[in-house]
Write a protein that binds this DNA or RNA. Structure first.
Length: 343
DNA sequence: AACGGCGTCAACCGCAGACTA
DNA sequence: ATAGTCTGCGGTTGACGCCGT
């Protein structure tokens, strides 16, 4: 059974809002409030707009104390940290940044921050190029893998960011060192990727749960082999917990303080990233040979190494990576996070 | 000046969950 | 219990402006 449309689309105006429309909407809401019924609101004030459109306009633009543009470095850090930690939960992230809307943050991430962070891969690839490995210097960014034209997969992005951070912290950790990865035939790789893809489609949470990866304690090679054997991915909850700080649970005193150190260390890394202070991870010569198997997997050696297949169709992974409990944890975490970072 | 490519951002769309009758 | 409605959210789209050729 289909869903009833929220409004009569034929009689609804679309596109940019006119100043008069803004004025009408703003004046009404400021005087009467939304009345808890966005659908009825446009009729009440004689606007030929969909209720949802009114809501969006109010929340993203007309609402008082909205800030547009001009994101500070501190805000950058918060967005990046939270994105890596909780994914594309823009509303939660926005809640930590007063005056910012989820839409704004989402746009800012997609158009700038993502490039700022992931674009560093470009640098490292260029370095590789200078070592005579690359043939193509154009479009060597993350999104250019032949497997995937678009990078909408926040989970993968987060993994990659996570790995970048790890590469800085522990350059020889498993995830940075393809030499520790099991050698697979390109065909096997593809099958693995397809399996991951289907797993992720059928049960997005299953992919992430049940496996441990500590953000700062990389698994041993044996563990890693086992991980890969199970075709698992890092446990995001685990990852997420690595960021929980200041939980004020006396029983966890020691762990808390450790967590605090981890986070501050992480924050330092992030700062470095954002400020371009650190040198991007440059694979060692022996590692580069290992990279080749992944490049061959893509049928070419012309691009930067993409660790993961970007071919995952994880449209839902980002939003379904954890259950509501985790979301609540995230919200708690966000509060703690705020304390931890002296916001 | 005209054109095309690209980046940005406001707005739309569709889904999922909460709520209500 | 169930169907309908509303809200909130995240992904995507399209208009617009800037810039290089």
């Amino acid at each position: 059974m289909g869903r009833a449309p929220c409004c009569d689309k034929a009689n609804v105006k679309k596109g940019p809002w006119a100043p008069e429309e803004d004025a009408k909407l703003k004046a009404y809401i400021e005087q009467y409030g939304t009345g808890n019924n966005w659908i009825a609101l446009p009729q009440k004030i004689g606007l030929k707009r969909c209720g949802k459109s009114c809501r969006l306009r109010w929340l993203n633009y007309l609402r008082p104390n909205i800030k547009h543009g001009g994101f500070s470095e501190e805000e950058d850090n918060i967005i990046c940290s939270l994105y890596i930690s909780i994914g594309s939960r823009w509303s939660i992230i926005a809640a930590q940044l007063p005056g910012r809307t989820d839409n704004d943050i989402k746009n800012y991430w997609n158009t700038r921050l993502k490039k700022k962070l992931l674009g560093r891969r470009k640098e490292s690839s260029s370095n590789t190029s200078s070592m005579g490995e690359r043939k193509d210097t154009a479009n060597n960014g993350l999104e250019d893998n032949s497997y995937s034209p678009a990078l909408s997969n926040s989970a993968l992005e987060r993994l990659q960011l996570h790995m970048q951070l790890q590469s800085l912290q522990k350059p020889f950790s498993f995830y940075n060192n393809p030499g520790l990865w099991p050698k697979l035939h390109p065909l096997q790789e593809k099958i693995m990727i397809q399996s991951l893809q289907s797993m992720n489609q059928s049960s997005p949470t299953a992919l992430w749960q049940g496996q441990n990866i500590d953000l700062y304690e990389p698994p041993t090679a044996a563990m890693a082999q086992e991980d890969l054997g199970k075709m698992s991915m890092p446990n995001v909850n685990e990852l997420e917990n690595s960021f929980i700080i200041g939980n004020n649970n006396p029983a966890d005193g020691i762990e808390q303080s450790n967590a605090g150190r981890e986070v501050s260390g992480f924050q330092a890394e992030l700062d470095d990233f954002l400020n371009n202070k650190t040198v991007a991870f440059v694979p060692q010569e022996d590692q580069i040979t290992e990279f080749d198997c992944f490049q061959e997997m893509n049928g070419s050696k012309d691009d930067s190494v993409i660790w993961w297949s970007n071919d995952f169709e994880t449209k839902s992974a980002s939003s379904n990576s954890w259950d509501s409990t985790s979301v609540l944890q995230s919200e708690q975490m966000c509060q703690d996070y705020g304390l931890g970072y002296n916001m």
